[in-house]
Design a protein around this nucleic acid. Structure first.
Length: 421
RNA sequence: GUGGGUGUAGCUCAGUUGGUUAGAGUGCCGGGUUGUGGCCCCGGAGGUCGAGGGUUCAAUUCCCUUCACUCACCCCA
């Protein structure tokens, strides 16, 4: 009989790891709240058309990575491969723009892409997703990046490297697209198979190709910055000067393009060296046409996503610092002591004191070993002897100091003792 | 989708040039005298050597197939 295992590329996040996840989530809520962002929770299943229209039919994500199925023969549904399209869908469905012209939203949750798993890449993975809708001021581009970098520093990343670029808008991108398509057609024989196909589907993506020969060709190619309209150029310059206000270091990477079609103007990415090939820990950009493309009013937006697993991987290895140790272990010897310990243990827990005890009737030595292994700060020793004398032994597990305390009013004594530290 | 690497105890890994009861460290359980953890010492439990097939007197070891994991391409968070 085959044991049932998790689905390929889908991971369990074990208790040893969840402390880190909770730590990151706390930082998210704290930092984002100060920038005015509020949480939105959205379904992980959407109608397939949402992603086709939102992300772009010719993107890799939509072409070959989505988990799509026909629901009871009625309609095609897809496990979301990213969050932005869903957030915009909810934003439009509930007319959030009508209540407030500016929406600052974030959401945390699983995304699904059917890629070959490898280091830092899973089929179910989690993103922290941020969307700012209703403003096209270049200061908001800088603000969002500032918040991202600040957040990354708050979770302990020392030097997050920020790269930015501008992708142009609907006015100037067609001209560039025409230029690059013409250029690439002339060099078709020097390009890899994928890039030859991209000439017709999505020529901007050739910039991203890692193939050496393609990179050589692209080196000679016309640059977007040369075709960009005055409006976009001005916007990009203001983004940069706003970033400089915060001494936020960044590098302009004219070759950076994004894998989703909806991006316009500003695009950015945060990378790190220590994640292997999957070096992007966050990415995002402006998408001034997306809301309209999804059937809403002409509302601009900017956002980013952080790869949760990748962030966790960058945290310090000692998960212990994120794990809470018990304050007290009650070592009970014999049936009478057990009868006394069980309610005491749980009453202390209800007071918020993390308390452990033994349920296996083990020897004192064994129980002390367990108290040590669990890294309990104190051990309360309860035996018949103590109960008959009305006095219990309280041992400090770190110093080894042990004192006798009154059984009378024990809860208050322990509470005071523990809080005193 | 395409390549490479790896599958032996819960975990990290040795090992078998084909030969009887397959090892270590760690973790787990117990003990080192009567009721006290960490260090040390002793003992115990735990493995169909990923699965299926082939060669052979004999396969965990050699061959084939398959599956899983993993890294890289690709893509991206």
């Amino acid at each position: 009989m085959q044991p049932i295992t998790a689905v390929r590329g889908f991971k369990d996040i074990l208790p040893e790891e969840t402390g880190k996840w909770q730590f990151i989530e706390r930082q998210v809520r704290e930092v984002f709240a100060a920038f005015g962002f509020r949480e939105i929770r959205i379904p992980i299943l959407e109608k397939t058309d949402l992603f086709k229209r939102g992300i772009g039919e010719t993107t890799d994500i939509v072409e070959k990575e989505m988990y799509t199925f026909l629901d009871r023969g009625e309609e095609y549904l897809t496990l979301r491969p990213e969050a932005t399209a869903s957030v915009i869908r909810a934003y439009l469905e509930h007319s959030l723009y009508a209540a407030d012209p500016v929406a600052r939203l974030y959401t945390i949750g699983p995304m699904f892409r059917r890629e070959r798993p490898q280091k830092g890449r899973f089929r179910q993975f989690h993103q922290i997703d941020v969307e700012l809708l209703g403003l096209d001021d270049p200061r908001t581009d800088a603000e969002v990046m500032l918040m991202l970098i600040h957040f990354l520093k708050c979770v302990g990343l020392s030097e997050p490297a920020l790269e930015i670029n501008t992708l142009g808008c609907f006015d100037c991108r067609p001209a560039f697209r025409k230029a690059i398509t013409g250029f690439l057609k002339g060099k078709e024989d020097q390009l890899c198979d994928d890039c030859r196909r991209r000439i017709h589907t999505n020529p901007l993506r050739v910039f991203d190709c890692k193939n050496e020969r393609c990179a050589e060709v692209i080196h000679e190619a016309p640059r977007l910055i040369e075709y960009i309209c005055d409006n976009c150029r001005d916007h990009f310059e203001q983004v940069q000067s706003s970033l400089n206000l915060f001494n936020l270091s960044f590098v302009i990477n004219p070759l950076m393009v994004r894998g989703l079609d909806y991006y316009t103007k500003t695009a950015f990415e945060v990378t790190t060296q220590s994640l292997g090939a999957q070096n992007a820990i966050a990415g995002g950009g402006r998408y001034d046409g997306l809301v309209r493309d999804l059937g809403g009013p002409d509302i601009p937006g900017i956002g980013f996503a952080v790869g949760f697993e990748r962030l966790v991987a960058l945290l310090p290895a000692d998960a212990a610092s994120f794990h809470q140790n018990p304050e007290l272990f009650i070592a009970a010897l014999g049936p009478d002591a057990q009868k006394y310990a069980f309610p005491l243990c749980n009453r202390l827990r209800m007071k918020g004191i993390y308390t452990e005890m033994d349920y296996l009737g083990k020897s004192l030595k064994s129980q002390m070993k367990r108290a040590d292994k669990l890294r309990c700060r104190h051990a309360l020793i309860v035996g018949d002897r103590e109960l008959s004398m009305g006095r219990l032994e309280l041992r400090n597990m770190e110093t080894g100091a042990q004192e006798t305390i009154d059984l009378e009013g024990i809860e208050k004594i322990i509470e005071a003792y523990i809080k005193a530290r």
